[in-house]
Simulated assay, not measured.
Amino acid sequence: MDASILGFLLLDGLQNGVIYGLLAIAMVLVFAVTRVILVPIGELLMFAPLSLVWLLEGKIPGTLWLALVLGLLWAGLARGRGALGPVLGALGLSALFFLALFLKPLAYPAAVLLVVYLGVATYRVFFLPMREATVLSLLIMAVGLHVAYQGLGLVFFGPEQFRPEPLLRGEVVVGLSWQGVLVLLFALLSVLGLYAFFRFSLYGKALLAAAESRLGARLAGISPEEAGTVAFGIASLLAGLSGLLLAPLINAAYFMGFMLGLKGFVAAILGGLASYPVAFLGALLVGFFESFTSFFASAYKEALVFLLLVPALFYQSLKARAVEE
């Protein structure tokens, strides 16, 4: 291996690692607040660029109708005055999508807001009624939603792969495009923004309180249900923006989100589903490990990446046993 190949592998691992890191942070956030392992986050990530492609081609994507159906179910479960929010959100989203058919720049915010609405509606419709359920029950629901959303993605967008136009064209150096730089800058700004959000904002501190103790949060006047809504909203926002930035580099297809989300989950496990910095560092480890194993043993790279779960889970089991003793 010479220096040029080493540089390519490091750049590839860094670009992949920061995306895994954002997904890992989103999964840790959602799990800490709601105890939901957000398995369908990969589908939410892919829904953004696929919906964007449809809008840029002058077509309404099927994901909008999915959002409207979930919005109606959300309004039905909320009842009374609480039903006004999801209805107004669905109407506003529909209006934005129809405007985006004629004003193409609006397609980008429309695709992101669609994913945010889908994420929040998913929580309010499927997970909020199960708020007292066990982690295993919530995981089964999450896996079921992953299967359902992936199947709907096939119905809405077909089996083809799509590559949206990059926001920035050209290369900085060989192996690193300006779009890749944009991904790295977005990851950096996201991490700093989340740090500032949790460190200085009232909502961020409320989320941390809800993650620490649901009962304690209630006693302090913080609604765990609203905290869960905010957590799903932030996670969906990260997924949607990551999908739009990543798709011009790797293509987008209905089936591609699951593997990305699974690698984000590996990184989250490396952080114990509790630590944001460790999860992000774990994601960088996953990205570099995947990059180098694809060079030395490409046929086994996926298996070797998931093999990282073994020592992480073994360490977590030892840690849990030590706490019990």
Score class of each variant (00 low, 15 high):
21 G>N: 05
18 V>D: 00
270 L>S: 08
92 G>T: 02
90 A>R: 03
30 V>S: 02
1 M>R: 14
199 R>G: 07
235 A>C: 06
104 K>Q: 10
118 L>N: 00
56 L>G: 05
209 A>N: 00
11 L>K: 12
74 W>G: 11
28 V>M: 03
139 L>T: 10
109 P>K: 07
150 Q>K: 11
137 S>W: 11
130 M>D: 06
255 F>W: 15
60 I>K: 09
75 A>S: 12
292 F>Y: 13
203 Y>W: 15
211 A>D: 00
93 L>T: 00
315 Y>F: 15
47 F>M: 13
173 V>E: 05
116 V>F: 09
95 A>W: 13
133 A>W: 09
113 L>T: 00
261 G>T: 06
69 V>H: 09
235 A>Y: 08
72 L>K: 11
19 I>S: 03
299 A>S: 14
217 A>E: 03
29 L>E: 02
124 R>A: 08
46 M>Y: 12
296 F>D: 03
210 A>L: 07
312 A>I: 05
20 Y>L: 04
33 V>M: 05
57 E>F: 14
309 L>G: 06
238 L>G: 04
104 K>A: 14
138 L>R: 14
288 F>D: 00
291 S>C: 09
88 L>H: 10
204 G>L: 09
53 V>I: 12
136 L>N: 10
48 A>N: 05
42 G>A: 04
282 G>W: 09
299 A>D: 12
230 V>E: 09
68 L>T: 04
253 A>S: 15
200 F>Q: 08
185 L>Q: 06
269 I>Y: 11
269 I>S: 14
130 M>Y: 11
13 G>W: 01
233 G>L: 06
243 G>Y: 09
246 L>V: 08
235 A>I: 05
176 L>V: 01
295 F>H: 12
242 S>A: 11
73 L>W: 13
202 L>R: 15
54 W>G: 07
272 G>D: 01
198 F>C: 07
148 A>M: 13
283 A>H: 10
186 F>V: 00
120 V>H: 06
207 L>V: 08
170 G>C: 03
159 P>M: 06
309 L>Q: 04
266 V>F: 09
91 L>R: 04
108 Y>A: 13
282 G>V: 02
227 A>E: 03
38 L>F: 15
